[in-house]
Design a protein around this nucleic acid. Structure first.
Lengths: 112, 112
DNA sequence: TTTTTATGCATAAGAAATTTATGTATGTTT
DNA sequence: AAACATACATAAATTTCTTATGCATAAAAA
């Protein structure tokens, strides 16, 4: 069974959501966390992740803190104030999308 | 309230799903049906719809039948055999995506 | 009666968000 | 010694939209 397709536009929401409960995370950690939480269903590729993180940072939603662990460099990201606000908005947007799609896929027969 | 964002990759699934219950539909009809079913939440633009229909046809999932109604030309699309099979697959994919996202957004605390 | 709105199709340019491929470097396991 | 895991990064190509524009007929509104 191949892994689930990532609908375009959902990655930044995933990143923000994870950071909203973890205080700070680094890139590789995010890929592993997603793999765990989805039981391997979803795999975030590096080619998608790093540019996404850079964009979120450029947009002022994340801030960076470098840290050296075991002679390896980690780039920790955490939500800014703006990022926290945007996270709420993104989650609502995802919620709406899912409800909308549900309405399309399982339409209630009109009683007219 | 602005209308819902369309996550990229979901349009073809929407089209296929509608056609799976309607036997045949034309482009404009699809845009209106989506607007109805989602109460205006989702608006399919023509710039997205027509290229999507052409691609589905090129991929052999849809077949075309022209029809003139009230001196206006309509291009009716209907599912091919292959299209019917693909619809099932696309719907499962969407279902999986939604469950996966739900698992990410509302993770069950591990009992370990 | 002229303009707007609705119906119906289409394409082209650009933007956004991926995938796929590749590169660098350290540390651990086989 | 080779393979895998950790950790970051970018570039080219692809997919899938948005936005803008165009054509044409018909009905409604101004």
């Amino acid at each position: 069974m191949s892994n689930s397709k990532l609908y375009k536009g959902s990655l930044s929401t995933i990143i923000l959501k994870l950071l909203s409960k973890e205080d700070k995370m680094y890139g590789y950690e995010i890929t592993q966390r997603v793999k765990e939480l989805t039981k391997g269903e979803l795999k975030i590729t590096e080619g998608a992740l790093y540019p996404a993180l850079h964009k979120l940072e450029a947009d002022g939603l994340l801030e960076v803190e470098m840290q050296k662990v075991d002679n390896r460099l980690r780039k920790y990201y955490k939500l800014t104030q703006k990022g926290t606000t945007e996270t709420v908005s993104k989650l609502q947007e995802l919620e709406r999308f899912m409800e909308t799609m549900n309405g399309l896929m399982n339409p209630k027969p009109s009683l007219g």
